[in-house]
Structures are given as C-alpha cells and as structure tokens.
Simulated scan of single mutants.
Amino acid sequence: MEKYSLQGMHCANCAKKLEARLQQLQHGEKVQVSFSDKALFVPGDVDINAVKKIVSAEKMFLNTTFAPTNVEESHHHHDKKGHHHHMNSGEKASKNMQLVFVLNLLFSLAEFVFGFLFNSAAILSDAVHDLGDSLSIGLAWGFQKISNKEANGKYSFGHRRFSLLGALTTSIVLMTGSVLVVVHSVPLLFNPEPVNSQGMFWMAIIAIAINGFATWLMGKGSSANERVLSLHMLEDVLGWAGVLIVSVVLRYQEWYILDPLLSIGIALFILSRTIPNFLSSANVFLESVPEGVDIRQLDKKIRSIDYVHGVSHLHIWSIDGEENAFAVTVYVSTEDVSEFESIREQIRLMLTDNNVTHSTIEVVVDMENLIH
C-alpha cells in the first residue's frame, strides 16, 4: 500500500465520492481516501496513471513528484478511524461554543446583579461587555453549525465562510462594547465612588475559573471563529486578574480611582487585540490575496514553465481564512494535450504550500507562438 499526497479535497463528501470512483478500477477494491491526512492510499497493483486521471477529473491533484510513502495496511485502517474523528471536528467545535455561550450568558447576568451590589464600575462594565460577548458567541455558535454543512447548489464552495461571519460579528460586538465601556468609565475618573472590594475579589476568582475553562476549550479549535473567541476568553482572564489585584489593593487603600482606571485599561486592551482580528477577517471577506502569498512571484514562476507564453486572470483568495481558492488562464505554445496536463500539475505543485483546496487552471493555445 502506497500513500500519496492529495490536494484540492475540501470536504468529506468529496473524499467519499473520489474513493467510490477509484475502487471501481481494476484491483482498486482496497483504495482508500483519508480526508484527515489529505492523502490517498493505493495498492501497488493499481495503475497509478488511471488513478491520476480520475483524481484530475474530480478537480484534485495527486502529487506524484516525490516518491510515495509505503505504509502497512493495518496502519491505514487505523487512519480511517482518525478520518471519522476529523469529520466530527466541526460538530465538536459547535458543542464547545454552545457550552461557552451558556456559561458566558449566565455569568454576565450575575455580573449585573453583583456589579450593582458592589458598586463597581469595572464589574458593571465587564457585565455589559460579557453580555455582548454572549450574544456574539450565540451567533458564532449558530454560524459554526451552518459552516459544518457540505457544499450544495446554492453554496458551491460549502458553508465554511459562515464561521468567518461569526468571527466578524464577534469582533464588531467587542469593539462596540469596549467603546461604550470607555465612555461610561471616563466620568468616574473625576468622581470615583467607593466599591465593595471583598465582593470584587470573589467575583474575580469565579470569573477567572470560568473564562480560563472557556479559553482552554476554544483554544483546541482551528477555525477563525474559534480563534477569535479563544483570544477574547484569554483577554477576559487577564482582565479579571487585574480586577483581582485591584480588589486586594482596595482592601488596604481607598484608591477607588483604580476601579474606573482598570475598566478603561481592559477596554483599550481588548480594542488593541480585536481590531487586527477584525481587519484580518474583513480582508478574507473582501477576497484579498491571502497573507504570505506573493502573487507577483507566483505569476513569474508560472511564466517560467515550458511552453507557457502568457498568464491572465490570475486570482488567489481565501474561502474562510484557512482554505484558499485559485484560478488562472495560461497561454501555451503547444497543442500537445499531454503537455496541458503536465503544465496543470506543475502549477498545482507550486500551490502546495498555499493550502489551495479549489483550483481552476485553463490552458489556451497561443496560435501566434505555436511550436510545430
């Protein structure tokens, strides 16, 4: 059994469809496709050229430039279990978000009650902030569930961008909430009020425990949605650590101005971290060239391929901040159909490090430069 790298496989259904077609080949009953590893396992007696034709017909790319890896059949069956686990990662992310949503909603309501009882601007400000978080997490949870759906007639790229939409919504809510916190706290700098430091202390302990657990839970995910939520949960932990320190100080010194100062500091810190995430998510929605991709250099490399005389309509963009799509038209000086496929393979090989899961490469014969 030989293992090949497979590029352009973006959903579990794609893997199943490809596997079913390959198993119809002669001696192909044991051919297996691993969605989790983006890999193809082929028995040694299967015609690899026939495999490549089917893979290409499914708009995927089988990397045969490097020697394939020999694997034991028993190892591969183990991989199939891992494949099933990977397919459920989106559902797991959705369940984690649901738990974080419930925890944040209940705790934000408790903050309002105890913020008034303790007369703490920092706690009340964080209550407003956490309520906004709860609403945005609820939306993110909903978007994450939608993003797990496979492609259909309406969303041909799948629903993965809904996860990114959740990240954008969360960022907007966080920025709005932080601005409101600053507006509320600035007047208290000139007229600070006494606060219940002991109550602040115990609220901080509980908050650090809850947000610490939520940070750990979200940190296990990989989507843009989960990354934004994990970052914010961590910021909440740091903010409540500040509340804890201030509550200890206020037990011995009546420096009540520390309460609004801390509130403003937390809000500004959250703004400084949220704005870059918002801009990054917005760039994906605006279909900008993904970070780390030099499109001019890519154009130059494509033009260096034998028989290629021109390049047009070169586009590369991100679908959801993780997977990228690519399209190009190349003009060639040959009518040899086998060279067409060689050119496509060379271009797809160039895209290996760019996480491209969708590629459209149109080859057009340049009649003026045709070599006979």
Rank of each mutant, 00 (worst) to 15 (best):
F61M: 10
Q24T: 15
L22H: 03
K80G: 13
Q297S: 15
Q144C: 10
K3A: 09
T170R: 06
I146Y: 01
L261M: 15
T169A: 14
I275L: 15
P43A: 07
I343A: 09
K81N: 14
H184E: 14
I264S: 04
I205W: 06
A214F: 03
I54Q: 12
A122K: 01
T357W: 04
M350D: 10
F143Y: 06
V308W: 10
Q144G: 04
V228H: 05
D236R: 08
I305P: 10
E111F: 00
S171V: 02
D236N: 14
D259N: 08
E341M: 13
R21E: 14
Q297Y: 11
R251S: 13
G82I: 09
F143Q: 05
N196P: 02
T329F: 09
K300R: 14
G166E: 03
L314I: 08
I316F: 06
K30M: 00
L40S: 06
A151R: 10
A327H: 07
F143T: 01
H27Y: 10
N13C: 01
A325C: 06
M9A: 08
W255T: 12
I146T: 10
W317R: 13
D37I: 01
H372Q: 09
S185C: 12
F107V: 02
E323V: 11
K154S: 06
K149R: 15
V173H: 02
E91D: 03
F340H: 13
V243K: 07
V102T: 00
N152Y: 02
L268G: 01
K53Q: 14
S263I: 07
A110M: 08
Q144K: 08
S280L: 12
E58G: 00
R251K: 07
A207T: 05
H83D: 10
V364N: 09
S56L: 09
W255G: 07
A207S: 14
D79N: 09
R160V: 06
S185N: 06
C11A: 11
S56W: 02
L25W: 10
W141Q: 03
G221R: 00
L298M: 11
M233D: 05
G242P: 04
S263W: 08
Q198L: 13
A12W: 01
V55T: 07
N211T: 05
I206C: 03
L124S: 02
L271T: 01
L168H: 00
V289I: 13
D130E: 09
G239L: 02
L261E: 08
G310R: 14
M200H: 05
W240T: 12
L103Y: 05
L174S: 05
L314F: 12
S247W: 00
D336S: 14
